Deep mutational scan, measured.
Amino acid sequence: GPREVTMKKGDILTLLNSTNKDWWKVEVNDRQGFVPAAYVKKLDSGTGKELVLALYDYQ
C-alpha cells in the first residue's frame, strides 16, 4: 500500500501538494504520504519551502 505518514500534534511537515482540498501530500523524515487537510495548518516559513503544522495526531 501507500507509504503512510504519521504525525503528532505540533509536528512541522513539508507540504508537497495541496491541490486536493481534502488530502494534502506531505513529507516528514524522508517519508511521503497524504494527511487530512483539516489536520494541518499552513505556516509562513519565510523560505521557499511550504510548511504545515500538525494540529492533531494522525497515524
Rank of each mutant, 00 (worst) to 15 (best):
G1E: 11
P2M: 14
P2E: 11
P2K: 11
P2S: 13
R3W: 15
R3P: 11
R3E: 10
E4H: 15
E4W: 15
V5K: 02
V5M: 15
V5D: 01
V5I: 15
K8P: 00
K8I: 07
K8E: 04
K8Y: 08
K9F: 05
K9Y: 04
K9M: 07
G10M: 03
G10L: 01
G10A: 03
G10Q: 02
D11H: 04
D11G: 03
D11C: 06
D11P: 01
I12Y: 05
I12W: 04
I12G: 00
L13P: 01
L13K: 00
T14R: 11
T14Q: 08
T14P: 08
L15E: 00
L15Q: 00
L16A: 02
L16S: 02
N17H: 06
N17V: 07
N17W: 07
N17T: 06
N17K: 06
N17Q: 09
S18W: 09
S18C: 10
S18E: 10
T19A: 10
T19G: 08
T19H: 10
T19Q: 10
N20W: 06
N20I: 05
K21Q: 10
K21E: 08
K21T: 09
W23Q: 02
W24S: 01
W24L: 04
W24F: 05
W24N: 00
K25L: 15
K25R: 10
V26Q: 00
V26E: 00
V26S: 00
V26L: 04
V26D: 00
E27L: 11
E27P: 00
V28F: 15
D30V: 04
D30R: 07
R31H: 11
Q32Y: 11
Q32F: 09
Q32R: 10
Q32H: 09
Q32L: 07
F34K: 02
V35T: 01
V35K: 00
V35E: 01
P36V: 05
P36Q: 03
A37K: 05
A37P: 04
A37T: 05
A37G: 03
A37W: 02
A37E: 02
A38V: 09
A38Y: 08
A38R: 14
Y39A: 08
Y39W: 07
V40H: 00
V40F: 07
K41C: 14
K41W: 07
K42V: 10
K42F: 07
L43C: 09
L43G: 02
L43W: 06
D44F: 13
D44H: 11
S45N: 12
S45R: 09
G46S: 13
G46K: 10
G48H: 08
G48R: 06
G48V: 08
K49D: 09
K49E: 10
K49W: 08
K49M: 10
K49L: 11
K49N: 09
E50A: 13
L51Y: 13
L51R: 08
V52I: 05
L53T: 06
L53A: 05
A54T: 03
L55F: 03
Y56A: 10
D57W: 04
D57Y: 06
Y58H: 03
Y58E: 00
Q59T: 15
Q59H: 13
Q59R: 11
Q59S: 14
